[in-house]
């Protein structure tokens, strides 16, 4: 009984702090998503109430008055059937078009985004800025600037979720996924893992700090990154002996990596593939699967020798060697 009372009083004191109904909206896409959400809520309420009140009216009006009452048959009504098949079809079509075009817009990053790298690992988030700064479970971004995250996982599937930005994307081992947002409000926001990933899934949390551009610059420089990602990548490149085969003049045993990113390569199998991040990752971890036509398959696999973070650094370096469309790292 005392427990019940205690429970009651805790509940009451919580309930009077009226629960919040709408999550913070702090990204360029949040308003659009919320509009759709509100319209969907309206449709849901409208139909639920319409059906409930119809049922209620029928229940009262046509309640059974005598035990042996037999109602007359209602004629089948084809126009009515068609009407209520077509009406939801139209509503659904409208919703589909709206939701999909919004999604289409929301999924495509503006071309000049700042790139940041994310690695999920049971049970934390590693963030790596191209400038070399690294953070754990914290992500600092400038307000008003589009940011694109390139993400992968060291172990199981995680999911990078920032409710205030209305963005979410799985973080999958063995491949890169990407997600972009443009924060619109300075503040601190939750970062959650939204894909179950084991024991401490619920504690794979972080914070996103949205800062004014000036603050962001200060933050970047105060972090005193000794080296940029490209520099770290170059170091690894030399240390692991990549440089012994990949010589920039193309005179080594492997192909020159200058201008590689964005190029089309022809594989031994005859397949043509665009060199993107997935391709480079594969070349490092599983070179046989992208063996090139005019080279002997002598590149050793580096799986187990480099972790995902080093792969990203190597990639940054390889990209910095120039690419077809954009020069070093899009800058």
């Amino acid at each position: 009984m005392r427990g019940l009372l205690q429970f009651g009083s805790v509940f009451f004191s919580l309930a009077i702090q009226a629960p919040q109904l709408r999550p913070e909206a702090a990204s360029s896409i949040a308003e659009g998503v919320d509009h759709l959400y509100f319209v969907l809520t309206f449709i849901t309420l409208f139909f639920t109430i319409a059906i409930f009140s119809t049922i209620f009216v029928f229940m009262v009006k046509y309640r059974r008055r005598a035990d042996n009452e037999i109602p007359v048959e209602t004629e089948e009504n084809l126009p009515l059937e068609l009407a209520w098949t077509i009406l939801p079809t139209l509503i659904c079509a409208g919703l589909f078009l709206w939701a999909s075009s919004l999604y289409f817009e929301n999924s495509r990053p503006p071309s000049a985004s700042t790139e940041i790298f994310v690695i999920g690992k049971q049970w934390m988030w590693h963030i790596q800025h191209p400038e070399g700064l690294r953070e754990i479970n914290e992500l600092h971004v400038p307000v008003g600037v589009p940011v694109e995250l390139t993400m992968t996982s060291e172990d199981v599937i995680h999911d990078f979720y920032i409710p205030a930005f209305r963005v979410k994307k799985d973080v999958v081992p063995g491949r890169y996924t990407s997600l972009w947002f443009q924060a619109t409000k300075v503040g601190t926001y939750h970062l959650f893992c939204a894909q179950y990933c084991g024991a401490d899934h619920a504690e794979m949390l972080g914070w996103v700090y949205v800062m004014s551009p000036a603050d962001y610059e200060t933050w970047l420089s105060s972090g005193t990154p000794s080296q940029t990602m490209v520099q770290i990548g170059e170091k690894t490149f030399n240390k692991l002996g990549c440089a012994s085969c990949h010589v920039s003049e193309g005179s080594g045993r492997g192909p020159s990596l200058v201008g590689l990113y964005g190029k089309e390569e022809e594989l031994k199998t005859g397949e043509k593939r665009l060199v993107d991040e997935a391709f480079i990752r594969q070349a490092i971890l599983n070179p046989n699967s992208v063996a090139l036509k005019n080279y002997p398959p002598i590149m050793p696999t580096f799986r187990g020798q480099v972790d995902e973070e080093q792969v990203l650094q190597l990639m940054a370096y390889v990209k910095s060697l120039g690419s077809e469309e954009r020069d070093s790292n899009g800058k």
Binding site: F96, A99, K168
Partner: peptide, 12 residues
């Protein structure tokens, strides 16, 4: 379910 079939809201 319509909220979840709608791509833009499902993401959230």
């Amino acid at each position: 379910g319509l909220f979840l079939a709608s791509l833009a809201t499902d993401v959230h």
